[in-house]
Write a protein that binds this DNA or RNA. Sequence first.
DNA 1: TTAATCAGTACTTAATTGGTACCATTTGCT
DNA 2: AGCAAATGGTACCAATTAAGTACTGATTAA
Lengths: 158, 158
Amino acid sequence: MIRITREADYGIVLMTALAQAEGQPRSAALLAQQRRLPLPMVSKILKALARANLLTSQRGVQGGYQLARPATAISAADIIGALEGPIAITECSDESHDGCVRQDHCEVSGHWPRINQAIHAALQSINLLEMSRPDPLQPLHFHPLHRAMTTQVIGRLI
Amino acid sequence: MIRITREADYGIVLMTALAQAEGQPRSAALLAQQRRLPLPMVSKILKALARANLLTSQRGVQGGYQLARPATAISAADIIGALEGPIAITECSDESHDGCVRQDHCEVSGHWPRINQAIHAALQSINLLEMSRPDPLQPLHFHPLHRAMTTQVIGRLI
DNA sequence: TTAATCAGTACTTAATTGGTACCATTTGCT
DNA sequence: AGCAAATGGTACCAATTAAGTACTGATTAA
Ligand code: FES
Ligand code: FES
């Protein structure tokens, strides 16, 4: 299945939480509690995001993490890229792998970068502010029946 | 990293090979040889593609596989979807998983379908015919030096 | 009849992910 | 100074998933 790792998934959840903190530092423990995520994971993820310069960190008492830039300047692609490395949809188009043995017999090789870029553009087009505000089409606390309907309509994608 | 499985990767390679066969049936063994792929894998993948009605199969001597529709009517999303199921980029937005425990505390939940659809649209926009003809920007048999240059330019995406 | 070919399933092994644990470092507070 | 709250970094284990193989059965043209 095409899916992002849970690390990146949690990463986006945590970033939205920080986007709502409005510049105040939030500790890993608080965020884990708020979003009901396991603290060790949260800690690991926030560290990685800080290393990628998406967050700034403050150690010590009253320390924590905050966004390094405005939420509008952070995209889904930024977050996913920080947590799982470059988006390389196939092994062949990964620069580190550098040279698929089948390349000479492969008609597609030149097209993978194009496909990757399309996906990257899709992820780049969604910024953190958009993700942080509850979606009017599918409210935060919705009724089970309503949820069943939306799932039916938009759940299956392909 | 976001990546498709090798099965889907090979699937696209094989589909391009069949697109170039122009309606003549090709056996799994021949395709495996042409593309330098392990025969058991090729066999498994072609079966799956046939079951998904992207290929038609003919058993017996002189049998093989051929495209079920014109190459222009088959998209990358079709092939990937056939081989790895629906594109559900996060567990939460997978209809079978049906109900993330964190949903009540999660601001992003409503946005995953949007992200998935963006990616799906990107994959849908690329059809098999496009993928089958050699890319003018990166020809089929290119000189090692040329390859180094293109890799440098377009290799890194994010 | 026979050989080529697809159909289906089950299995093994390798790779990746998810998660935890541990210890070091920094920093404000008393 | 000393302590407690916080991040920084690394290493490790367990569970899941992917990759690849093997085998047996069904169909069909020559
Ligand atoms: S299979 Fe690797 S370049 Fe096409
Ligand atoms: S984490 Fe599952 S819905 Fe947001």
